[in-house]
């Protein structure tokens, strides 16, 4: 009954769609609610009556956050940090993941074990050590300082995921290339990288999200309003007990849109690029 192709009874079908609809209400209602809230004028959100369609829709919140607040600048900062984190992550973890999958060298097993152990340390509690590192590198209050932390922070996970993926690729192609006189670098760049596309997509996405999702590190390391990333900037709008929900909603939508599109675009790769690497460790 679970997976068979035989005729499904009407009761089962109704039940299946009922589960699906409840789940979609749960998944999508919060997003729908924010979308309509962003179209409400100032005070109309402060109502005790449920209202699902804004009868006085306006773009005032959008106009306000994009013209009166440095939101676009903050988003630009976030995109810069996330983009650079993605690039640095790819550069340092792709080659390492490949090396751990293909090369035999002294200390390989010990290094893999060591990295796995290091990963168990909760990164948040490194906050003060990170602060000191950036202080000494003169990278406090600097977007590059955040890139350094985010890109390095996920290094171990990404190396393991990539190693797992490379392990699943057959070695024949590279071997043939090496016999034909290619260098290990050529074999890596020209043969293996194109084959590893799903895993690269996943690594890139995780690098991007590491840069785009963080709040507390950025909040600790940045002091200058002009340098704020989107979450730091948006949360700085709260004063005491008042929360400007209309602006929050509009900002949330503007910020989420590009990330969500990227996510949906990469969703096919998410399954193949993650499952093989993560499961086979």
């Amino acid at each position: 009954m679970i997976g068979s192709s035989r005729q499904t009874s009407r009761v089962t079908l109704v039940l299946l769609y009922a589960i699906l609809i409840v789940a979609i209400l749960f998944a999508a209602f919060p997003i729908y609610f924010v979308a309509q809230a962003s179209l409400r004028p100032g005070q109309s959100l402060y109502s005790t009556q449920l209202q699902l369609l804004p009868n006085d829709a306006t773009l005032a919140n959008y106009r306000y956050v994009t013209t009166q607040l440095p939101l676009l600048r903050w988003i630009g900062n976030s995109l810069f940090v996330a983009g650079m984190t993605t690039i640095v992550t790819l550069v340092i973890t792709l080659s390492a993941g490949y090396a751990f999958s293909r090369f035999k060298f002294r200390g390989r097993t010990q290094m893999l074990g060591g990295m796995l152990a290091l990963q168990a340390f909760p990164g948040l509690l490194s906050l003060f050590a990170f602060y000191l590192i950036l202080l000494n590198l003169n990278l406090l209050n600097n977007l590059w300082g955040l890139v350094l932390i985010y890109a390095s922070g996920a290094t171990v996970f990404n190396i393991f995921n990539l190693k797992g993926y490379f392990d699943t690729l057959p070695a024949d192609l590279e071997e043939a290339a090496l016999i034909d006189g290619a260098t290990p670098f050529q074999a890596f760049f020209l043969i293996m990288l194109p084959l590893a596309r799903p895993a690269i997509a996943v690594t890139a996405l995780f690098g991007f999200l590491a840069g785009f999702n963080d709040y507390i590190m950025a909040q600790t390391m940045l002091f200058d309003e002009q340098l704020y990333t989107a979450p730091v900037g948006i949360f700085s709008l709260q004063d005491g007990y008042r929360t400007p929900w209309g602006w929050f909603a509009a900002s949330a939508l503007i910020v989420s849109l590009p990330v969500t599109l990227l996510f949906l675009y990469l969703q096919r790769n998410l399954v193949s690029g993650l499952a093989s690497g993560a499961v086979k460790g």
Binding site: A96, Y98, A99, F103, M111, S126, S152, V156
Partner: peptide
């Protein structure tokens, strides 16, 4: 191949 990643791991 692994140098840059190892350096990052040492620091962070």
């Amino acid at each position: 191949f692994i140098g840059p990643a190892m350096l990052a791991i040492l620091i962070v």
